[in-house]
Every structure is written in structure tokens, then in C-alpha cells.
Simulated scan of single mutants.
Amino acid sequence: MSEFPASFSPIQLHNRLNRPVWVGFKMARRGSRQLVMLSAGAESGAKLSKNFETFVGQIVREFKLDPEHTDFVELRREKAGGEGATGSADAHSWFRWHAQWVGSAPMECKADPVTSESARSYLDEVLVQSNAAA
């Protein structure tokens, strides 16, 4: 599963079509909040933009997380040599996912790019730490 960062653990989830897919997964804690980092990798059936509700519902139930105290972020890795690429194979973007929660079911989900330099720096720091809580 080399398409995920080394500090991520592969986790098998079911997409919206109920097909098993692999997603990169990492959890970290900061104070009273839980941070869940996800990456779809190269598998097209694991795209978070189409499957976020399905994936995080499974994660919240499996790990018994409180969605009100959990932040979900997505790591999107850009292909080297793509538009705007600087030649680095490690080019990536962060997206913070928001949802209205009804119990463990997410509704009205949307992702916003993480634009704050301090937030991106923090996420990059967590990314390289090898102590995933999964």
C-alpha cells in the first residue's frame, strides 16, 4: 500500500457502493480533540469526495469516537509532474471536512482547503510522526 504516507495505516472500509476499499488512516490526539487523517491513495473507489459520509460513519462507529470532538482532514497527494508541480513527489494538499452529525451519521458533508500556514504546518508535523493511534 505504498500510495499512503508511511505513518498512515491502511484500513479497509466499504464505499457507498458497498465495495471494500483501502484508505490510509491515522489518528492523533490534541488535548480533548481527536484528529482523524485520511488519504484515498490511488484507488478510485476510495475517493473521499464521493464516500466521506460512508467512510467516517464506519470510523466513528468502529473506534467509538465522539464526532463532536473529532476533526477529520484529508490528505490529497498530487501526482508528480502534474499541473503546477514543482518536481516534488511529495506535493500534497489538506482539506478539512465538516458535517452535521445525527448520532454517528454525518449529513451535509463538505470539505474546505486548509489555507492557514500554521494549520498546514501542524498537519505536516503530525503526518511525519510515526506513532499512529490506529
Rank of each mutant, 00 (worst) to 15 (best):
R30G: 01
G31Q: 07
G31N: 12
S32L: 10
S32N: 11
R33M: 14
R33S: 13
Q34N: 15
L35C: 09
L35S: 08
L38M: 04
S39Y: 04
S39T: 05
G41R: 00
E43D: 11
E43C: 07
S44D: 10
S44L: 08
S44Y: 03
G45P: 12
A46P: 08
A46C: 13
K47I: 04
K47N: 07
S49F: 07
S49I: 14
S49R: 10
K50Y: 13
K50S: 15
F52G: 01
E53S: 13
E53H: 10
E53V: 08
E53M: 07
T54R: 06
T54W: 02
F55Q: 14
F55R: 09
F55P: 13
V56F: 07
V56A: 03
V56R: 02
G57H: 10
G57L: 05
G57W: 04
Q58K: 03
Q58Y: 03
I59W: 05
R61N: 10
R61V: 05
E62L: 06
F63P: 03
F63Y: 09
K64F: 04
L65C: 03
D66Y: 07
D66L: 04
D66H: 12
H69W: 12
H69Y: 09
T70R: 06
D71V: 08
D71H: 12
E74D: 04
E74I: 03
L75Q: 06
R76P: 00
R77S: 03
R77A: 02
R77H: 01
K79D: 00
K79C: 01
A80F: 00
A80K: 09
G81A: 00
G81R: 03
G82I: 00
G82L: 00
G82K: 01
G82Q: 00
G82D: 00
A85M: 02
T86C: 02
G87F: 06
G87I: 03
G87A: 03
G87C: 06
S88K: 11
S88W: 08
S88C: 08
A89H: 06
A89Q: 06
D90Q: 15
D90M: 15
A91F: 00
H92N: 06
S93Q: 13
W94F: 07
W94P: 04
F95V: 02
F95E: 05
R96Q: 13
R96N: 12
W97Y: 13
W97H: 11
H98P: 09
H98N: 15
A99K: 09
A99I: 10
A99F: 13
Q100S: 11
Q100F: 12
Q100M: 12
V102F: 01
V102K: 04
V102G: 01
G103V: 02
G103Q: 01
G103K: 02
M107N: 10
M107P: 01
E108H: 15
C109M: 13
C109A: 11
A111N: 12
P113Y: 11
P113E: 11
P113H: 13
T115E: 14
S116A: 15
S116M: 05
S118A: 12
S118G: 08
S118W: 06
S118T: 09
A119Q: 14
R120S: 12
R120L: 10
S121Q: 07
S121H: 11
S121L: 06
Y122P: 01
L123W: 08
L123E: 06
D124V: 07
D124I: 05
D124K: 13
E125R: 07
V126H: 02
L127C: 15
V128L: 11
V128N: 09
Q129F: 02
Q129M: 08
S130K: 14
